[in-house]
Simulated assay, not measured.
Amino acid sequence: MKSTDIKHWATDIAYTLAGILFCGFALKSFLIPNQFFDGGVTGMSLLLHELYHFNIAVVIVLANIPFIIMGAYQVNKTFAAKTLAAIIMLGLCLQFMPYPTDITSDKLLVSIFGGVFMGIGVGLAIRGGCALDGIEVLALYTGKRISFTISEIILGINIIIFLIAAFEISLPTALYSIMTYYTASKTISFVIEGLEEYTGVTIISAQSEFVKERLVMELGRGITVYKGERGFLKDSFDISQPVDIVFTVITRLEVRRLRNLVHEIDPKAFIFTSTIKEAAGGVLKKRARH
């Protein structure tokens, strides 16, 4: 095994173990003691635990097994094996790890911080190459057979979970649990997409040579150039000129500086930005931390 493979393998294990510990902490210290719920298979497991008093560790493992089997066919067997190991370890963590259970009973704190720690855990596990909730696999499987998107399927399943919780437990608890799920979802996105938030910038300008030079020499950015044509106006549709379309990636904090730089060269330059979830490699400048 190559050293890079060992490094990646060790990193995946570290992410997964950290994710399991965070999820266990969210469940045992926040959600379960206060009868709160989450979405997905975890939400189903918590609901079964509250309604029928089943052992939560056993329920979470058993509830995820069908989706893990499904994942072996929908994703790959390596993913399914890693997910099964992670789910079993989460069950053991819930059963034997001595988490504190009396941190807070304030519903707002429980809904926010329970969701944050759950989101961190699930996000870290995904970075480690596995899942701690099989709902994504179910949505992927179902989405290939019906016209709904994966997000719509997950939303529909979660609506059912929270409606049952509202009728069987209480409406306020269900509403706070929705806040927990929302917080967890946003935290998962933050963890998966990385701490660095980048913006892709495309610049179309008649002064592209000067723009390219200043982006590289002043901002220290790598650039990619596409060959295109500009013009095609309503009153002169048949007239166009070749142009270099410049693309670069910067941090959000540098967007204003880049726009000012480009407009200083060409006030008529066309600039548009797009959000980049995660970027690595190339000439990327890390955002300064204070």
Rank of each mutant, 00 (worst) to 15 (best):
K2Q: 12
Y15F: 15
Y15V: 02
L17C: 11
I20T: 09
L21A: 14
F22H: 05
A26G: 04
K28M: 13
S29N: 09
P33T: 10
F37T: 10
F37I: 13
T42S: 10
G43H: 08
L47C: 04
L48T: 06
H49L: 03
I56P: 03
V59L: 15
I60T: 14
P66M: 08
F67L: 12
F67C: 06
M70E: 04
A72F: 13
A72T: 12
T78P: 00
A80Y: 06
A86V: 06
A86Q: 05
I87R: 03
I88C: 10
M89E: 07
P98I: 07
T101E: 13
I103M: 11
T104Y: 07
T104F: 02
K107T: 05
S111K: 05
S111E: 09
F117H: 06
G119L: 12
I120R: 04
G121H: 08
L124M: 14
I126M: 15
G129H: 04
D133W: 10
D133F: 02
R145M: 11
I146V: 15
S147Y: 12
F148P: 01
G156H: 06
I157P: 00
N158L: 03
I161M: 05
F162L: 12
L163Y: 05
A165P: 02
A165V: 14
A166M: 14
I169Y: 04
P172N: 13
Y181W: 07
Y181R: 10
I188D: 03
S189P: 01
I192T: 11
E196R: 03
Y198R: 14
Y198T: 12
V201D: 00
I203M: 01
Q207S: 09
S208N: 09
E209P: 00
E209F: 00
R214H: 08
E218F: 00
E218R: 02
R221V: 02
I223C: 01
K227M: 06
D235I: 01
S240Q: 10
V243Y: 00
V246C: 01
V246K: 00
V249Y: 00
I250W: 00
L253W: 07
L258A: 00
R259Q: 08
H263A: 00
D266I: 02
P267H: 05
P267C: 08
I271D: 02
T273W: 00
T275H: 12
I276N: 05
A279T: 15
A279N: 07
A280S: 13
G282H: 07
K286N: 13
R287I: 09
A288K: 11
R289V: 14
R289Q: 07
